[in-house]
Design a protein around this nucleic acid. Structure first.
Length: 300
DNA sequence: TAGCCGTGGCG
DNA sequence: TCGCCAAGGCT
């Protein structure tokens, strides 16, 4: 039995089925790869594409972003969601300038030490941008391995030691092949071995997929907890931050009061945004995105 | 470690 | 319609 019985068919499938994504092109910089990975966290590719293009034009290097106030990163994050990612990406850019001379580091440990970069993103950037050998374990890969190797429809709720050991055992030994395997198995999960309705007829490893061979038994464990959204603090935070994103400068508190009726929840959410550094209260009682430049009010 | 953190499209 | 889901990280 080869080290990884799935590698050859998945690599062959990837060669003809991979999407042409800008951060995968040869001219993509490590910075472009890093930005894409942060934006893609919990966010579909189609929504990331235009924002990524805008960021690459506006801030082609970590130094370019680092030179801006953090609020500009939040503003140009738009409606991608989870805006703390924008704040952390800005902080990562400044750390890259200060600690790494403005170059995105290639070492996993250095990447992992940057704000907003966890185990997955550090491995992904090291692998995709620098060709390093790493087990790149995202939700797609976990699902593919759960089905193919374990015979379960879905992976466990949280990453287990067994999953990590399995993934690491499958990383090709050839350093030139390892990063190709990482991106290929991820792509298979994104396009074919999907969560809702997997397209087993189009899968290059269906003949050796334990889950399919078992008749695709449904998930039997505890149901995954669905997360409500309407009426939550998260929705309230989103409303408040949208007001600040769309305003050219500081806004009076009344502008925030207008977008959420429940005053108790509104204050709690606003306090949370301030605590997170996403919103800055000003001495005059107004609110702004963090680090905004005070406009010159002496003209006119 | 389980809960929190946005947003929008799809089955 | 509405719950589920999308290249996670942090505490």
């Amino acid at each position: 039995m080869p080290r990884n019985p799935y590698a050859d068919p998945i690599l062959a499938w990837y060669a003809t089925n991979a999407r042409d994504l800008p951060w995968r092109r040869p001219d993509a910089s490590p910075w472009g790869v890093l930005v894409s990975e942060i934006m893609l966290q919990q966010t579909p590719v189609v929504r990331v594409l235009p924002i990524w293009e805008e960021w690459m034009t506006r801030w082609p290097t970590p130094a370019a972003l680092a030179a801006e106030p953090p609020g500009e990163a939040v503003r140009h994050w738009g409606r991608l969601g989870y805006p703390r990612r924008a704040l952390r990406l800005h902080a990562a850019a400044r750390a890259i300038v200060e600690r790494h001379g403005g170059e995105v580091p290639a070492e996993y440990a250095d990447l992992r030490a940057l704000p907003g970069i966890g185990d997955y993103t550090a491995a992904a950037v090291a692998s995709f941008a620098y060709g390093r050998r790493h087990a790149v374990l995202d939700t797609n890969v976990r699902r593919v391995l759960a089905r193919a190797a374990t015979g379960a429809e879905y992976p466990p709720n949280s990453l287990t030691v067994a999953e990590r050991k399995l993934a690491e055992s499958l990383v090709p030994l050839d350093p030139a092949v390892a990063p190709k395997w990482a991106v290929a198995v991820m792509e298979l999960g994104a396009l074919v071995c999907t969560a809702r309705s997997p397209r087993c007829a189009d899968c290059p490893i269906s003949a050796r997929c334990a889950w399919r061979l078992a008749g695709r038994p449904p998930h039997d464990g505890p149901a995954r907890r669905g997360q409500r959204y309407a009426g939550t603090d998260r929705q309230c935070r989103g409303r408040l931050l949208a007001v600040l994103r769309e305003a050219a400068g500081p806004v009076p508190k009344s502008a925030l009061d207008e977008v959420w009726a429940d005053a108790v929840q509104r204050e709690r959410a606003l306090d949370g945004l301030v605590a997170d550094g996403l919103v800055e209260p000003l001495p005059d009682g107004a609110y702004a995105l963090p680090g905004h430049t005070v406009a010159d009010a002496s003209t006119g």
